[in-house]
Each structure stands twice: as structure tokens, then as C-alpha cells.
């Protein structure tokens, strides 16, 4: 019952997101076909392209055609690249997905380790130190940190490339190397936030009565931390991780531009520059859809960990 409700909300959110994304670009002033062909285009050419792109149909119909296309995995054709958008996206995903995954893995490991350690050391100096570091981490713009990393590892030490991506087929090792700095740049800022959340959630849990009960049963500190602390602290941590995923994706878009990685982020940018609105629409919808899906998974996951959540429907 709970799952059903959540699933319905998930679908509804996807729908609402698609409407919003479409609406934003549908109110674009001027005729898109005109913009694409340029000022020197003849009125007939503009009209032909307009009809070809289906821009002369009423807005709800255009929305429907686009949305139906999405569901059928038909994403249309890019005007600037003249290739099916689905192919473009697939190509770019080969860069963005590994990057996001690598960043996510680094973030999770770092923030769980540091957060739990800080909580166990509270209020000693290790805890204070980690908190100070995370405070700095939150304040640093990820793209600035990326530039600093480039400065150190590419310019000075020349260990890692400053940008670009050779492709998985040709040079897999070099390809992996070119994802390291971007992933680290992304991970640092994300971990700073998550470390604080993890530590705070853990400290809250350690103050609870049932932790005292566990101690009264004879469990030592380590056993209490693992068996009673961690699982209970996971729920708020997982929730925030889900919310942070949106930040991660956005960060990926920015970082790809810093390192000139041919991922979805660069695609969006180039499409914006080329006024290739369909590409922008599709990619933004894809990214938004991922975020919504991740949040859905986190919701269900949290309910599985904490059965009390299935009780309250809101």
C-alpha cells in the first residue's frame, strides 16, 4: 500500500517535471525554426521547417508528441548534429555515468568513514578537526577546487590530464585517468556536506535511550556503534544522500565543462549555444528523471530500513 502510493507519486512527479521542462522552452519568444535557420532564411524555408518540426501544432499536442516519444525511447533528432538524440545521449552517458558513479563511491566512503569517526571521537580534537575541514569543504566551489587540482596534478606534477577524454575503446587506462580529477573535485564538496550529516545523525542516535539499553546489556562501544548506531543513523543519511544526488548531477554538468569531458553536461552546453532546444529538453528531462527516480528508490529504501515509515502515509 505504501509502495503503491509512493510509486504513484513517482509517476506523477515525472509527469509534472516533463510538463515544466516543456513549458519553459515552449514559451520561448520567437519562432524556433526561424532562430535555427538564421536571419537570412526565406519565409518559405522557415515555414517548411516549422511544419517539419511540428511547431505549428497547438502546445498540448506538441507536448503530447514529445512525451509519447520519450516513453517510446524516441527522442527525436538533433538539428545541429543531425543525429538521433538517443544516440548522442548514449554516447555521452559513457562519460557521465562512470564519472558520477566514481564520485558517488568516493563520496560515500569518505563521508561515512569521516562522519562515523568524528561521531565516535566527539567532542575530542579529531572531531573538531573533521568539522573544521568539512566547513571549509562546503565553502569551496567545486569548479574552483577542480582548477586547483588541475594546477597541482596537471600543470605542476603532470601526473593526470588537465582535460579531455580519449574514449574507452582506444585508451581505457588514460580514459580512467581523465576521470580521476573530476571525480575527486565532485567528491570533496559532496563529502563535506555528507560528513556533517552522518556525524550529526550518529550523534543523535548515540544519545537515544536504546543505546544506553544496549550498553546495559553488555555490548562494548564498538558493538553498540555498529549494531545499534549505524542502522538507526542510516535513515536520515540515506535521505540526504538522495537529495544530494540532484546536486551531484548538477555538479557533474559543471565539472564536465571544467575538464572538457564529452558527457551530458557538455552536450547541454553545446546545444544551448546552438539553440538546439530539443536536445536541451531531452537531456534535462533525463537528468531530472534520474533525480526523481533516485529519490523514489531512497524513499522505498528508507521504509525498508525503518518499518515505522510505512505507517504514516505522508
Amino acid at each position: 500500500m505504501f509502495f503503491l502510493k509512493r510509486f504513484v507519486t513517482f509517476i506523477a512527479t515525472l509527469f509534472a517535471a516533463s510538463v515544466l521542462i516543456f513549458a519553459v522552452q515552449a514559451v520561448l519568444p520567437g519562432n524556433a525554426a526561424e532562430v535555427m535557420l538564421g536571419t537570412s532564411a526565406t519565409p518559405e524555408a522557415v515555414q517548411a521547417l516549422t511544419r517539419q518540426l511540428g511547431l505549428d501544432r497547438p502546445v498540448p499536442v506538441r507536448y503530447w508528441r514529445w512525451a509519447a516519444g520519450l516513453c517510446a525511447a524516441n527522442l527525436g533528432t538533433s538539428v545541429s548534429y543531425d543525429t538521433p538524440i538517443a544516440d548522442l545521449i548514449r554516447e555521452r552517458l559513457a562519460v557521465t555515468v562512470p564519472l558520477a558513479a566514481l564520485a558517488m563511491v568516493l563520496t560515500t566512503i569518505a563521508s561515512l568513514a569521516l562522519g562515523l569517526y568524528a561521531a565516535s571521537q566527539h567532542p575530542r580534537s579529531a572531531d573538531v578537526g573533521i568539522m573544521a575541514l568539512s566547513q571549509i569543504g562546503i565553502a569551496i566551489p567545486s569548479f574552483w577546487f577542480a582548477i586547483l587540482l588541475i594546477l597541482l596534478f596537471s600543470v605542476k606534477l603532470q601526473w593526470l590530464p588537465a582535460g579531455g577524454f580519449p574514449g574507452w575503446q582506444d585508451e581505457p587506462v588514460q580514459a580512467l585517468k581523465s576521470l580521476v580529477l573530476p571525480a575527486v573535485a565532485l567528491a570533496v564538496v559532496q563529502s563535506a556536506i555528507l560528513t556533517r550529516i552522518t556525524r550529526s545523525a550518529m550523534l543523535d542516535v548515540l544519545r537515544e535511550d536504546y543505546v544506553r539499553t544496549a550498553r546495559a546489556k553488555g555490548l562494548n562501544r564498538r558493538q553498540v556503534l555498529w549494531r545499534h548506531g549505524l542502522r538507526n543513523a542510516l535513515v536520515p543519511v540515506l535521505t540526504v544522500m538522495g537529495l544530494q544526488f540532484a546536486n551531484l548531477l548538477t555538479g557533474t554538468v559543471v565539472i564536465e565543462n571544467v575538464f572538457s569531458l564529452p558527457g551530458l553536461g557538455r552536450l547541454v552546453f553545446q546545444a544551448i549555444a546552438n539553440r538546439d532546444m530539443l536536445v536541451v529538453q531531452d537531456v534535462v528531462m533525463l537528468l531530472a528523471g534520474c533525480v526523481i527516480a533516485i529519490n523514489f528508490v531512497v524513499d522505498v529504501g528508507c521504509a525498508w530500513v525503518d518499518p515505522r515509515l510505512t505507517l504514516s502515509a505522508s
Binding site: 512527479t13 519553459v24 540532484a246 548531477l249 548538477t250 526523481i292
Partner: peptide, 18 residues
């Protein structure tokens, strides 16, 4: 809640694109 699920910067990028 819906807006939280939406990557903000992404929408900002889209708006500036439009």
C-alpha cells in the same frame, strides 16, 4: 517537495538558455 527533487542549477541553466 517537487521543486526539491528538481536540480536547481539545471533549471537555471535552462532558463538562461531560453
Amino acid at each position: 517537495d517537487f521543486t526539491f527533487a528538481f536540480p536547481a542549477l539545471l533549471t537555471a541553466i535552462m532558463l538562461t538558455a531560453v
